[in-house]
């Protein structure tokens, strides 16, 4: 019998974090201006979760990594070209909107159903990975909701490290206040882990991994089931870019000594 983990990573696409975002009204509710034209990436925290999953799977024989993504098929396809070269995984895709204004409860219901429908799912080996934050909605909400729907009692958020121990137990480091980690020990799967950025570097592009992944990714995208999630019963009263404009005093031609004096005075003020 296999002893490895079944790691399911939940993650979808978000606009490339450096892009300028502006809200726009669409018939489906609030969205982003030029949303489909913006370059997209796998949500950075979900991407870390995926890399950690691959790393854990590589260290734990018999493990398997599945990326479960609910997003617009065309964008998923595009993002998979970048992600597919990084680490081995299988894709399960749901075709629906991935914007930040969609309701996480609706998304979670779809994702939970998709996890339950995974062939050969074994709860005793299931680790549900995702980001503890997201560049769209934020705060690991969807992941927690899916965990609850799957009745997984052990959840962790802000995870920077998972170390497997003997007997299926593992140690987890979670970020807490003050730049510190809380250390916990969990008796074993199933568990939910919402990842912070961890400590792994971004994996390199590997053409062989890409070739192998893509043979399954394209068929997975082709059979992506529609998941028309919406904004639920949320009534959006206003959506705006916050006004943060300040009157900046620009100080040129001041000597470093004088700048330093001014700064020290400023630091000392209450």
């Amino acid at each position: 019998m296999s002893t490895g983990y079944q790691i399911v990573v939940l993650g979808s696409v978000v606009p490339d974090p450096l892009q300028t975002l502006e809200p726009a009204q669409t018939p489906q509710g609030p969205g982003l201006k030029n949303e489909l034209m913006l370059p997209h990436v796998l949500d950075p925290w979900a991407a870390h979760a995926l890399y950690e999953a691959a790393n854990l799977a590589a260290r734990t024989p018999g493990s398997k990594v599945t990326l479960l993504s609910l997003g617009p098929k065309a964008k998923l396809q595009q993002v998979m070209m970048a992600v597919g070269q990084r680490v081995p995984f299988e894709l399960v895709a749901l075709d629906g909107p991935a914007g930040g204004f969609t309701d996480p409860h609706e998304v979670a219901a779809r994702l939970a159903d998709a996890v339950k429908a995974l062939p050969g799912l074994d709860r005793s080996r299931l680790l549900l990975f995702g980001g503890w934050e997201s560049a769209s909605r934020g705060a690991g909400v969807t992941l927690q909701l899916v965990g609850e729907r799957l009745e997984i009692p052990d959840q962790f958020q802000g995870v920077d490290q998972l170390t497997p121990g003997p007997d299926g137990a593992f140690e987890v480091l979670e970020r807490v206040e003050g730049g510190r980690h809380q250390v916990s020990s969990c008796a074993g799967a199933p568990a939910v882990l919402g990842w912070a950025t961890g400590s792994l570097g971004e994996p390199k592009n590997n053409p062989q991994v890409g070739m192998a992944n893509m043979r399954a990714i394209m068929p997975a995208l082709q059979k992506a089931a529609p998941a028309p999630v919406g904004t639920g019963r949320v009534e959006y009263l206003s959506v705006a870019v916050p006004r943060t404009q300040r009157e900046t005093r620009i100080v040129k031609d001041m000597s470093p000594d004088d700048v330093a004096r001014e700064l020290v005075e400023w630091i000392a003020q209450d």
Partner: peptide, 23 residues
């Protein structure tokens, strides 16, 4: 950029070829 993305989507969706950016 948009024309290339549109064409790449068509090409990829065929499943017959692989495109690898960032390489």
């Amino acid at each position: 950029g948009q024309l290339m993305q549109w064409m790449s989507a068509q090409v990829l969706a065929s499943g017959a070829v692989q495109l690898w950016p960032g390489t």
